[in-house]
């Protein structure tokens, strides 16, 4: 203990590279965003006006922002729940396969190697109202598919594409978690007369809880920030803002509308929101996790 206390500087030196990276790529831009959120500025930065909380006030009274909030809530829950439950199902199935297990696993992990924008383009082509194979198929079944004018279809499309993209990541972790569960526990439960369903819920699922919790946090971050590329390539937030999530609105207002003040204020709100959400997850859900 005493030996450790003498090296007060060493931990800091060891942490320095990581801290420097965080400072340059997170703290500095975040601080700039906070400052920017209190100004109205022209795009070229030639003149600016300090406006206190006006940018924030405008955001919270804007119908479009509140709508984006609602869209984000629906989208996040659907994608996180969908991506995690499907991945769990596939992982459990893949864990049982003996012949050709390797190829199954490789195929299931594959989508993770696809960039979000590429995934978006892929889905866009399949469902393009004029050229898409799947939309043509749907039309033959009597279902008119045009996500450029039908908000519900557009939402379904971005949810499906985002789930498909994230499922592999979840799959890898669930599979690793499943494989680390001692077979003896499951065998003991089987001897005690528990069926497969019971074994899963009373033995496997609780033992997977650290993995599930980790994935819940990662998936929340994913749906809030990393689905941008998919949305941009499939629907562009449309029609009429039906698939415009909070992060997409930050991008639209900042990079297409050059409204830097409002865009910065929205980033700050988003930062606080995701921070709070993560805090809540750690505070309440982590208690139920059994390590």
């Amino acid at each position: 203990m005493a030996t450790f206390q003498r090296h007060r500087l060493t931990p800091w030196i060891l942490l320095a590279p990581q801290l420097a990276v965080i400072a340059v790529f997170f703290f500095w831009p975040a601080a700039q965003a906070i400052v920017q959120a209190f100004y109205i500025e022209d795009p070229f930065g030639l003149g600016h006006e300090f406006v206190w909380f006006e940018n924030f006030a405008r955001i919270f009274t804007s119908f479009e922002y509140l709508r984006a909030l609602g869209v984000t809530a629906l989208f996040s829950v659907s994608v996180a729940v969908g991506a995690m439950s499907l991945a769990l199902l596939l992982a459990v199935q893949a864990d049982r396969v003996i012949h050709g297990a390797h190829s199954y696993k490789t195929l299931l992990i594959w989508p993770y190697a696809v960039a979000p924008a590429v995934a978006g383009v892929l889905w866009m082509f399949m469902f393009d109202p004029n050229l898409g194979l799947l939309s043509a198929g749907l039309e033959n079944l009597g279902i008119g598919w045009n996500h450029r004018v039908n908000g519900g279809q557009a939402m379904l499309l971005v949810i499906l594409a985002s789930i498909w993209k994230q499922m592999s990541y979840n799959f890898v972790f669930f599979l690793a978690g499943l494989q680390s569960i001692p077979k003896s526990l499951l065998e003991a439960a089987a001897i005690d007369g528990a069926g497969p369903w019971r074994r899963f819920w009373t033995v496997t699922f609780p033992l997977l809880s650290p993995t599930s919790f980790f994935l819940l946090v990662m998936n929340s971050v994913y749906v809030f920030f990393e689905t941008f590329g998919t949305i941009d390539a499939t629907t562009g937030g449309g029609p009429g803002g039906a698939t415009r999530t909070l992060v997409y609105k930050v991008y639209e207002d900042g990079f297409e509308g050059y409204d830097l003040g409002s865009s910065a204020a929205q980033s700050v709100i988003l930062l606080i929101l995701v921070g709070l959400l993560t805090l809540l997850q750690f505070r309440y859900i982590e208690r139920k996790v059994q390590y």
């Binding site: 450029r148 004018v149 039908n150 908000g151 449309g238 029609p239 009429g240 803002g241 639209e252 207002d253 297409e256 509308g257 050059y258 409204d259």
Partner: peptide
Amino acid sequence: GNMVQIRDVVEEELENIFSDE
């Protein structure tokens, strides 16, 4: 000014009209 955004807004509202919103 802000015509880029205005066009987006107009397109958006047209979409709301054509989708019966």
